[in-house]
């Protein structure tokens, strides 16, 4: 299980990476993609959508079922990963890289402090399995 130290996490298995100022990139973790296995469809919110931390914002489907993805942070969607439309398997192959979901402009950067650090997230995953 790959849990990079430089990212922040949620207990619902999303990751957040700060890029500059108020902009973050988010996706789902290696542990999440491993649990879901074949990801065959990803539905993302459109650019401009306001997201609220903890509220469902996207859907990932495996062959077997659809799963809600929760906004790890509040803010406005400024970019979405168009490639996932044609190649949802990128989430399985490279969850922290080519499998990113959204760029978000944070409305409250203080929220970052409420996210989990790598060691805390790792502990949650280990309890689950």
């Amino acid at each position: 299980m790959n849990v990079p130290d430089e990212l922040k996490y949620t207990k619902t298995h999303e990751w957040v990476k700060k890029i500059n100022g108020k902009e973050v990139v988010v996706g789902i973790t290696d542990h999440a993609q491993e649990q879901l296995k074949d990801i065959v469809y990803v539905e993302l919110p459109p650019v401009g959508r306001e997201l609220k931390m903890g509220a469902p914002c996207a859907v990932v489907e495996s062959v077997k079922a659809a799963y809600d993805i929760y906004a790890p942070i509040s803010g406005k969607v400024i970019k979405m990963n168009q490639e996932l439309k044609e190649s949802p398997q990128l989430v399985n192959e490279d969850p922290y890289g080519k499998g990113w979901f959204l760029h978000i402009e944070m409305s409250d950067p203080e929220e970052l402090n409420r996210l989990l650090i790598a060691s805390q997230y790792k502990e949650i995953c280990e309890k689950e399995t």
């Binding site: 296995k37 074949d38 065959v40 495996s62 062959v63 077997k64």
Partner: peptide, 11 residues
């Protein structure tokens, strides 16, 4: 067992 590997590969 729901799957061993990937459902797609198994199918």
């Amino acid at each position: 067992p729901i799957q061993y590997d990937s459902i797609i590969n198994e199918h």
